[in-house]
Design a protein around this nucleic acid. Structure first.
Lengths: 237, 237
DNA sequence: CGGGCTATTGAAGGATGTCAATGTGAGTGG
DNA sequence: CCACTCACATTGACATCCTTCAATAGCCCG
């Protein structure tokens, strides 16, 4: 893994990038302009280059990170050293909130996988905001709630179903997000990362995709481009 | 699985059981007596007999459940029909919150595994409370945060490590909660349930416990009573 | 004391991980 | 614009872990 040091590039406290940052996020974007201004005043913009770590497990955490631009992988390390991709953050998503409330240190790693800009809010500032604007708490609770839902679902699927089924479920979910009638989708990550996300190996992923294709459920147009031929059948795998 | 109907027994809106219920829970117990009274007025006490379902997947949810007395299993069903134990609730724990904020229906099942009494708060009442007492939101966020932490940790361990290691980690964690120097612990559930919780089968659990004993890491005093002989070694499994 | 559920143990087959070799493609620098 | 290169992807062979099915033993509670 790349162990580049954390590097803070921009510290622009002015204007544009902030505004888009704060007003982007679901947890803030329901607020009035005036309130947004106050929030912006407490945030700091930081940029990371491709493959830089934003934080690592064991580090103390005192900030919330909101992705402004770029893409971030959240992953964990097992004792074996094997890593598992937990979540992928895109602009508008946030992370770092765990350590803000219950833990003192991060338990996972956050890595920018392309050049990325984030907005940071300090723990104390965020807590002030929560007290001042209770509606933010509700948004955060809603976000946590759905993330918890997803995580428990993932834990269940890991422990119970075959890799082939996990892939089928993953493909079906990915499909939803594009037009429902479209039968073609682009994998949001490499198959190597998909293996990590689904808790298996690239070799198995490769084989299972071949199997699914041989059985006529999908067609692999390119490495990342998949056509769903038989969604019904796929979900019965 | 027992598919007993939900049965509501007590509807006592008076005194004692309420008081202990509301003042028990971490999310409320920091509030003033006066505030507790208001909250109590909005709760309803309901009892369930052993093996009764409190809610089931697919059902609409509009209440938060706080365990007053008893023990509740939260579990999920995979397509295969196999069930996985997600969480065990003891007095003071709560559930039902997911559906309150992000989903309309439950995705899991809640079953009383002994005679159990819960306090229910309606969605709307709870939301009033959150607006009125922002500190409750902070407590709930903290609770969610740690639960999310646990869930992601579990997902990682499922996807990455061997059953033997999962057992080792589980035993080590169980040990923490009792006196740290005590080398003996009582399993909080049957081995059958442990299998479900760890995403495996009773047979495998049985065999792995035997293996761990043969390797000198643990000693099985009774079916539920385990002595940790070599914690160091256990964690290296 | 008996019934039913939990726990254990054996044998066999299936699914996935590992190791190793080879193919492929996207991005980079000339 | 092209060629090079390195990481990603694929494929095969094999080992291992785990599940499944089946049978037996043990325990709790009525």
């Amino acid at each position: 893994m790349n162990q580049n040091n954390i590097q803070q590039c921009h510290h622009s406290h002015t204007g544009h990038s902030h505004k888009s940052c704060v007003s982007l996020v679901p947890i803030f974007n329901h607020l009035e302009v005036e309130q947004l201004d106050k929030i912006m005043a407490t945030t700091k913009s930081v940029s990371y280059k491709k493959n830089e770590l934003i934080y690592r497990a064991g580090e103390e955490s005192d900030s919330l990170y909101i992705i402004n631009k770029g893409k971030v992988h959240i992953y964990r390390l097992a004792e074996s050293g094997k890593e598992q991709l937990v979540r992928i953050l895109n602009p508008g998503d946030f992370t770092g909130e765990m350590a803000l409330f219950s833990e003192v240190t991060h338990e996972s790693y956050a890595k920018a996988i392309v050049d990325t800009t984030v907005c940071m809010i300090k723990r104390v500032d965020l807590q002030d905001l929560l007290v001042k604007y209770p509606s933010i708490s509700l948004k955060i609770i809603a976000e946590f709630s759905s993330r918890l839902e997803a995580s428990e679902k993932q834990a269940t699927s890991f422990s119970i179903v075959k890799v082939e089924t996990r892939i089928a479920l993953f493909l079906a979910e990915s499909l939803d997000k594009e037009e429902p009638d479209r039968v073609e989708l682009t994998l949001p990550m490499s198959k190597k990362d998909l293996a990590s996300y689904l808790g298996t190996t690239p070799e198995t992923i490769s084989r299972k995709f071949s199997d699914l294709e041989a059985q006529g459920y999908i067609k692999q147009l390119t490495h990342k481009r998949i056509e769903i031929v038989d969604l019904e059948g796929l979900l019965l795998v």
